[in-house]
Amino acid sequence: MTETADWTGHIRRIQNSKDQEAFAELFNHFAPRVKAFLMKSGTTESMAEECTQDALATLWRKAHMFDPSRASVSTWIFTIARNRRIDVLRKERRPEPEDLAWGPEAEPEQEDVMSLQQETNQLGRAMAELPQKQRELIEKAYFGDLTHSQIAAQTGLPLGTIKSRIRLALERLRHSMK
């Protein structure tokens, strides 16, 4: 199962009813990926195991803060794993932007959630179609193998579409907070 919307439902079930079955399914899909990601990012096997468990525990605790009109579940898990890696490998704090958490009064539109999912799938396909060398360079950047001065800013991916989608979601959120 790779459909973003289905995983979004899992997060809702965790948020609404602390659904352990939903969590177990999500865990079985994502934990081995997070562990692979962390090991490719330079952590040892045992550290990656520990961090993966921490990351998935964080997902449970933050389930109510997930906004499916702005991020897919895999995007969100990536950010949690990345921050855990910075914490463990570099012993640094990770300053995050001010949170635009949405309450019940600002429930995202289903249409926005669907659109974001489409954009995310398109991004995934575009990445799969990149020449291998270019794709590897992008992966290296995300595994933390490139210093910031080595990162070339152009990914060659059509990020403009997903950016406008997220931008729209942010505008609606800002509007609902007024």
């Binding site: 692979a36 990601f37 993966t52 468990q53 995310t120």
Partner: peptide, 28 residues
């Protein structure tokens, strides 16, 4: 913010496709 979140979306795709490593039996 939208630009950062779109780069994070790319990170999500990298995570999806970076393979898997088995977690320990009692990990869950």
């Amino acid at each position: 913010r939208a630009q950062v979140e779109s780069y994070e979306a790319l990170g999500g795709e990298v995570l999806q496709k970076c393979g898997t490593v088995d977690v320990s039996k009692d990990a869950l």
